[in-house]
Design a binder for these strands. Structure first.
Length: 460
RNA sequence: GUCCCGUUCGUCUAGUGGUUUAGGACACCGCCCUUUCACGGCGGCAACACCGGUUCAAAUCCGGUACGGGAUGCCA
């Protein structure tokens, strides 16, 4: 079978984490089966849909490498077709016109809540001859009142509901526009979707939609309802959990591949593997490896995965990433950063961590001194550092050369590296923490190191 | 209320009736490495929601309870 999947977001906001993972699973399943992955914008609710949201969704998908194989279909553009199907459904007796007023509906709902019975419109049993001409109506599906329906869900297994609990959903609004419940079925059918992979908040809807397939004599797709992603406290992901949009994670410095890898492992697994490349994911992905319980979003784990990807990056790619976040004052500064990058990336969770920590490599001449670093430079330590600076005059300026000179200096002064390491770092970087200070001296070069030691150690 | 789904360390998960003293990863703690912070190495803490049943044997199968989630919209 030629597999066709789709990701069908409603454009009411940015692409959020949950949507991104749904897109990912659809993309992966299609790729695994050498099928097609399509995009559809579910904008049947015109009031809530915006162009900005559509752009943001495309942007997020693009970043994750989950753009559709064909231009996205706009659901609202298909409304004539949806209406046509609705009319066919009415003609076949599978749907009916309902003239219930808002008040009547409310009281029926009220009554059904008390009795436990499903909401039913009296109009489902009235013939077309009783239609109230000129009055507005909606079109509802006529759900069977007995028997049961079983859906073989690829993730949830066999799920059965009694048909009598299915409500007569509205498929055409009073203004004649189609609802999502109808549009989703018609579009999935027309687009030849073979596998509907979506959030399990749609599991109940699947039974209602199933009736449309049956009434139209259409083959229903394979359903795969995947559990939603929850926040760290186990509740539905919402604003108070912090960032939700894919774009926000990109802005926080997370790599596309890391996000891809993390999202993949949220609810899906392949043995013990934690970090899975795109290629391997395509090769390994399968619906029956998707878990049935909701996963919580864990920022620490994401950061760890991202750190792994950062470590694997080559220096030049990494430099391009971080270079957007500062302006190097000279070519020399660029060379210093390139030299230090292998060391810097070992200690970073995101490339932003690196960009924020290299101020001492960017500038030439005097550097900004952090307060906690400044206190390490007492008059006593300044004297020692100035002496060291003199001793450095004839050092061979590479890692080994510097080590030799510094060790000799320490022996002569009867000191240990721990006695001068911190002040030396403070004087040269203006910081209390950094990678190996000797490596930094190598990166900075002789004259820049001398300058900084002299500037920082001027006695007051 | 009714219907549907779920429940293994704090978190993501491995586990598909005996291979399990329930494994890995993140987080946390300790030790080592070390000029600092990290990284890395080693070690530690820590889970089958509960109650019954089936079976020689159950985290795994069945039933119930509890808790969580979803649906019950002229939203998607």
């Amino acid at each position: 079978m030629n597999v066709v999947t789709r990701f069908a977001p409603s454009p009411t906001g940015y692409l959020h984490i949950g949507g991104a993972r749904t897109a990912l699973f659809n993309w992966l399943f299609a790729r695994h089966h050498a099928g097609t992955y399509l995009l559809r914008i579910e904008d049947t609710d015109k009031a809530r849909s915006t162009d900005d949201a559509i752009a943001a969704i495309y942007d997020g998908l693009q970043w994750l490498g989950l753009a559709g194989d064909q231009p996205a279909v706009s659901q609202s553009a298909q409304s004539a077709r949806h209406v046509e199907v609705a009319n066919a459904l009415v003609a076949a007796g599978a749907a009916y016109q309902c003239f219930l007023s808002a008040e009547e509906l409310t009281s029926i709902r009220e009554a059904s809540k008390n009795s436990g019975d499903t909401v039913r419109s009296p109009w489902r049993d009235r013939g077309p001859s009783e239609a109230q001409l000129g009055k507005s109506f909606v079109v509802r599906m006529k759900m069977p009142s007995d028997g049961s329906t079983t859906i073989k869900d690829a993730v949830q297994g066999n799920v059965t509901v009694q048909n009598k609990v299915l409500d007569d959903m509205v498929i055409l609004r009073a203004d004649g526009t189609p609802t999502y419940m109808l549009a989703v079925v018609v579009d999935d059918h027309d687009m030849g979707i073979t596998h509907v992979i979506r959030g399990d908040d749609h599991l109940n809807n699947a039974f209602r939609q199933y009736m449309v397939y049956k009434s139209m004599g259409w083959q229903e797709p394979v359903f795969a309802h995947i559990p939603l992603i929850h926040g760290s406290d186990g509740t539905k992901l919402s604003k108070r959990h912090g960032a939700l949009s894919v774009g926000a994670y990109r802005d926080m410095g997370f790599l596309s591949d890391a996000m891809f890898s993390y999202l993949l492992r949220l609810g899906w697994s392949s043995g013990d593997k934690d970090i899975i490349s795109r290629d391997n994911a395509v090769r390994l992905f399968d619906l029956d490896r998707i878990g049935k319980s909701p996963a919580r979003f864990d920022n620490d784990k994401l950061r760890d995965i991202n750190a792994n990807y950062i470590k694997q990056m080559d220096s030049h790619s990494l430099f391009e990433l971080i270079a957007k976040h500062f302006t190097a004052s000279s070519d020399a500064a660029q060379q210093r950063i390139l030299y230090m990058l292998p060391l810097l990336k070992e200690r970073a969770k995101t490339h932003l961590d690196i960009a924020e920590s290299v101020s001492y490599l960017i500038v030439d001449g005097p550097i900004d001194m952090d307060a906690d670093a400044a206190v390490l430079l007492t008059n006593e330590t300044k004297d020692i550092l100035l002496d060291l600076n003199k001793a450095l005059t004839f050092a061979k300026w590479d890692l080994e050369g510097l080590k030799v000179v510094i060790n000799t200096f320490l022996e002569e002064k009867d000191l240990k590296m721990r006695d001068i390491g911190l002040p030396l770092r403070a004087a040269i970087t203006g910081k209390k923490q950094s990678p190996s200070i000797i490596e930094i001296m190598v990166a900075l070069g002789r004259s820049e190191t001398n300058t900084r030691l002299q500037m920082a150690c001027k006695l007051l």
